[in-house]
Design a protein around this nucleic acid. Structure first.
Lengths: 205, 205
DNA sequence: AGGTATACGTACCGATCGGTAACATTGTCA
DNA sequence: TGACAATGTTACCGATCGGTACGTATACCT
């Protein structure tokens, strides 16, 4: 059940009514630390220290560390679909090109030292318990990803759209993980090419 | 550098010289708990409690919790290649069938509630620091996996063996991750079929 | 039986974990 | 100027973290 504590994450754009400034700083810092080093690895003390605030401030805006982690992932979710929709908007009516754009971008992102993969995926690994607030957000994100990929497989005219959509999801998740496992020059750089091969092999003849 | 503390993990087969029995119990329990719930999530107290031993016993056999985690992964590594080699041995001289057997097995393993994916992959997510003892084992395991998959891609006569090998690795990692993300009925069940499609599309004509 | 090495248990360490109580300070708008 | 909301300050809580000093039991060999 959602509390009413941390819902006002409206961006303070200059002069509008935007009281809670500490909450944003906390969430920004938590976002960065949780993503780069892992949720379990980061204590609330380090978050408040780096954010230049104090612990009571954190707990006035967020009911618990677990809920702060969930808020981090909700923010991650927003930005995730922003990137996804960008790739989609770049190639209207051409799902195959949309996918290629999205995957090319992922492949590039993985080719950097200390790449940390997908925050959603990582959170699910850290919290196997399905009832954990962070994992709930993560699973919802992945369900939506699966739904979109399958829909695109239909739009591409695949022989077996569900299988192709799922195959693309496997490639994407594999890119997230192997990106952080292998670093530069790893298998993730080939995700777009492999996806294209898989698509080609999955279309109706 | 390897210490000489935890090297005698020889199985005590009845009457041979096998003094340290506590070490095996500890490693067995740690294996189960680390895999199912995560390394960071499990404290040494719970391990010794479930193993029916005491904490000093743990630290006589393992220099630290981090090294215990590394030992867990070394054991995991052994069993991993056992399964891999089983699939290989089942189809001598037929890498495509070997792969299919291996992937079918993975696909089946993922289709169970509370599937927890690959212990190696999970450990790497939990410990982004490349110098962490557990991660060192994990990365070595994945490098070896990549090497084998690329070699099999060569043996299958792929047009671009490195790309195919890496594509297969992406599918496998994707299966591990999405297996624990989606549970029953998830995308991981299609890993073998998608791999076969990808192979088909990657062979020389 | 006695000595000796090896394994094990009790009790404890300082540090850090997530979280809170009570109160002082600030900034904002009417 | 007053009122209110947001933030800061200080100090604290019990629980758990990884790790250890030190005494006790057990097994083996002579």
């Amino acid at each position: 059940m959602p509390t009413d504590k941390n819902i006002d994450l409206t961006i303070s754009d200059g002069h509008a009514s935007a009281p809670p400034k500490a909450a944003k700083k906390i969430l920004d810092v938590a976002y960065d630390l949780f993503y780069r080093r892992g949720i379990r690895a980061i204590g609330v003390d380090e978050i408040v220290k780096r954010a230049g605030v104090t612990k009571p401030s954190l707990y006035r805006s967020f009911p618990s560390k677990d809920e702060l982690a969930a808020s981090y992932l909700r923010q991650y979710d927003l930005e995730y679909w922003e990137r996804f929709d960008e790739a989609v908007a770049a190639h209207p009516g051409d799902p195959r090109a949309q996918l290629k754009a999205f995957l090319t971008r992922i492949g590039k992102r993985t080719q950097v030292a200390d790449y940390r993969g997908c925050g959603m995926t990582n959170a699910a690994v850290e919290y196997p318990d399905h009832s954990h607030p962070a994992r709930v957000v993560s699973e919802a994100n992945k369900q939506e990803l699966r739904r979109r990929l399958r829909a695109m497989a239909v739009a591409m005219g695949a022989q077996d759209p569900d299988t192709l959509g799922d195959g693309l999801l496997l490639l994407i998740e594999g890119a997230y993980i192997s990106g952080q496992l292998f670093g530069l020059g790893g298998p993730a750089q080939s995700v777009a090419r492999n996806a294209d091969l898989l698509i080609e092999a999955s279309l109706k003849k």
